[in-house]
Design a protein around this nucleic acid. Structure first.
Length: 474
DNA sequence: TGAAATGTTGGGGCG
DNA sequence: ACGCCCCAACATTTC
C-alpha cells in the first residue's frame, strides 16, 4: 500500500533525524510535510518576535532538506487539514505531541474531528526524555522539588529511547501546489532588526548537530564551573535548537551519555532534567505562566514603575552587570543563564516588579523562549514557585559580577561605555573616584546612567515587602 | 544555583 | 611571659 498519502504535521520538531512521527509517516506511504502557523490570540500560541525570526530560518532550512516540499500555512489547523485531506486523499495524519496546555486542548479537538472523518492518527512523544505523566512519587502525585524528581523519579525510570535514524524522503514526498510559502507567514520584522541578532546564530538541523558535537568535544569538559562564566563559551547554547526541535532531546542525552561519566557530564545532563521538570510543572499546573504557584504571592505589593521597567528592558539601569545581561538579550536574542538569574532577581526584588512582566519581555526577546522553561524559571527566581529560590535570596549584581565575570570581559563587551574603567569599579561605577571618571570621560547620568535604585536600600525594601506579605496571610 | 550580619578562632603586634 | 587588642579568615545564623 505504498500509494497511501500521509500528512506529517511539523510543529516543534523541525528535523529529519530522530523524528518518530515523521519516521512513522514514511513507513505508511507518501508524505505531505506541512507546517501551520496559528496566530490566533488564544492563550499563548502567538510566539514572541525573536522566536518568529528563528522560526523563519528554521523553516527555510527544513524546506531545503525536504527538497522544497514543505507546505506552509497560516490559520486554523482544522480548516487547513480539512482541505488538504480532501485534496490529497489523505488517510493518516502524524505529529509529535506538544505539552503546552493550549496545545493539549487544541489537539483534543483536532483528534476528535479527525476520528470522525475516519482519518488515522499517529501521535508520539519526542520532545521529552520521559513520558511526563510517568514520573510520579510513590503516592502517585507529581514531584514538586527538582532533586527528588530527577534523582529518584527520572534516574530510576527507564532509559530514554535511542534516537531513530534520519528519514530518507526524497522519492516519497508529495508536493503541494496550494500552500502559501514561508514568506507569507510574515515572520521577519520590519524594520529589519533581525539581521544583527541573527549574526550570532546559524539555524538548522545540520548546524545544530555540528554545534552539539563541538560542545561535547571541546566545552563540556569544563561545564560544571565554566557554565557560570558568561564571558566564556562553556554552556551549550543549544536551547533554541532544542526549542524548535532541530535537535531532539534524546540525541543530546545519548550523545552526552556516551562520554565518560564525570561531574561535568552529570551536571549537563541534569540541566536537561530541569527542562523535564519544567514541563512536568506546566503539565500539572496549566496556569504556571500566569499564576503564582505559591498563592500567598497573590497579595504581593508589586511596583508599577514604568520607568524602572523600561530601564530594565533597555539595559539602562545603571547597574553594569544587569545592563550587560539585558543588552545581550536585546542584541543576540539570548542571555547566559547566570545573567537570567541576576536580571530576574533584580527586576523582581530590587525593582519589585511583577515577575510576569519579566516573563513577557523574555518571551518576546529570546530566540529560545519556551513556555515551560521560561515560566518555571521566573517563578523560581521570584520565589513563588514550588521548588523556588527563597524570596530573601537576593542577588547582589556587584558581587555576582566580581565572582562570575572576574576579568570583566562580559560587562565590557555589552557595556562599552565602561570599557576603560578599572576592574575595581567596573561593577559599581558609582563608587569610582570622580577623578578617574573625569579622566575617562564617563559622566554618570549623561553617558551612562546612575543606578536607578540603591542596591542596599532596595534590598531592604524587598525584604520588608516580603515580610508584610507573611503577616497578611496569617 | 545568596548576601549580610553575627559569631568564633587564632596569630601577631605590643605594652 | 603574659594579657590585650586587632583583625583576617572562616563558620554560623538570619533575612
Amino acid at each position: 500500500m505504498i500509494d497511501k498519502s500521509i500528512i506529517h504535521w511539523f510543529q516543534k520538531d523541525l528535523r529529519l533525524t530522530d523524528n518518530p512521527a515523521l519516521y512513522k509517516a514514511t513507513t505508511l506511504g507518501r508524505v505531505l510535510p506541512i507546517y501551520i502557523l496559528d496566530d490566533s490570540p488564544s492563550v499563548r500560541d502567538k510566539i514572541g518576535d525573536a522566536s518568529r525570526v528563528w522560526l523563519h530560518h528554521s523553516l527555510n532550512s527544513l524546506n531545503d532538506s525536504l527538497d522544497q516540499s514543505l507546505a506552509v500555512f497560516k490559520g486554523d489547523p482544522i480548516d487547513i487539514l480539512s482541505s488538504l485531506i480532501d485534496r490529497h486523499a489523505i488517510t493518516d495524519v502524524c505529529w509529535n505531541i506538544q505539552y503546552e496546555p493550549w496545545c493539549q486542548k487544541r489537539d483534543l479537538k483536532i483528534i476528535k474531528w479527525l476520528e470522525k472523518k475516519n482519518i488515522k492518527i499517529h501521535l508520539f512523544n519526542s520532545s521529552l526524555l520521559w513520558q511526563p505523566d510517568s514520573i510520579k512519587k510513590k503516592d502517585g502525585t507529581p514531584y514538586k522539588v527538582f532533586t527528588p524528581f530527577y534523582k529518584r523519579g527520572c534516574m530510576n525510570s527507564s532509559i530514554p529511547e535511542k534516537p531513530l535514524p534520519t528519514v530518507n524522503l526524497t522519492k516519497n514526498l508529495i508536493k503541494c501546489e496550494t500552500h502559501q510559502g514561508i514568506e507569507s507567514l510574515n515572520l521577519i520584522p520590519a524594520p529589519r532588526w533581525d539581521k544583527m541578532m541573527m549574526n550570532n546564530w546559524s539555524v538548522g538541523e545540520v548546524r545544530a548537530k555540528r554545534l552539539l558535537s563541538t560542545f561535547l568535544k571541546e566545552n563540556i569538559c569544563q561545564y560544571k564551573t565554566g557554565r557560570d562564566l558568561p564571558a566564556q563559551l562553556y554552556t551549550s547554547r543549544l536551547s533554541p535548537y532544542i526549542h524548535f526541535g532541530e535537535l531532539s532531546i534524546r540525541q543530546i542525552w545519548h550523545a552526552a551519555q556516551q562520554l565518560q561519566a564525570d561531574s561535568n557530564t552529570d551536571c549537563f545532563l541534569s540541566q536537561l532534567g530541569w527542562r523535564e521538570f519544567s514541563y512536568n510543572l506546566l503539565l500539572h499546573n496549566p496556569d504556571l505562566p500566569c499564576k503564582n504557584l505559591k498563592s500567598k504571592f497573590d497579595l504581593f505589593p508589586w511596583s508599577n514603575n514604568q520607568d524602572h521597567l523600561k530601564a530594565w528592558q533597555r539595559g539602562q539601569t545603571g547597574i553594569p552587570m544587569v545592563d550587560a545581561g539585558m543588552r545581550e538579550l536585546w542584541q543576540t536574542g539570548y542571555m547566559h543563564n547566570r545573567l537570567r538569574m541576576i536580571v530576574g532577581s533584580f527586576l523582581v526584588k530590587n525593582l519589585r516588579i511583577d515577575w510576569r512582566k519579566g516573563e513577557r519581555w523574555f518571551w518576546d526577546c529570546l530566540v529560545d523562549a519556551d513556555l515551560a522553561n521560561n515560566s518555571a524559571g521566573w517563578q523560581w527566581i521570584a520565589g513563588c514557585g514550588t521548588d523556588a529560590s527563597p524570596y530573601f535570596r537576593i542577588f547582589n549584581p556587584v558581587t555576582q559580577g566580581k565572582k562570575f565575570d572576574p576579568e570583566g570581559q562580559y560587562v565590557r563587551r555589552f557595556v562599552p561605555e565602561l570599557k576603560k574603567i578599572p576592574l575595581k569599579y567596573l561593577f559599581s561605577p558609582w563608587e569610582a573616584p570622580k577623578s578617574i571618571l573625569d579622566h575617562l570621560g564617563i559622566r554618570l547620568g549623561e553617558n551612562y546612567p546612575k543606578p536607578i535604585v540603591d542596591l542596599k536600600q532596595s534590598r531592604l525594601e524587598a525584604l520588608e515587602a516580603f515580610s508584610s506579605l507573611k503577616q497578611n496571610v496569617i
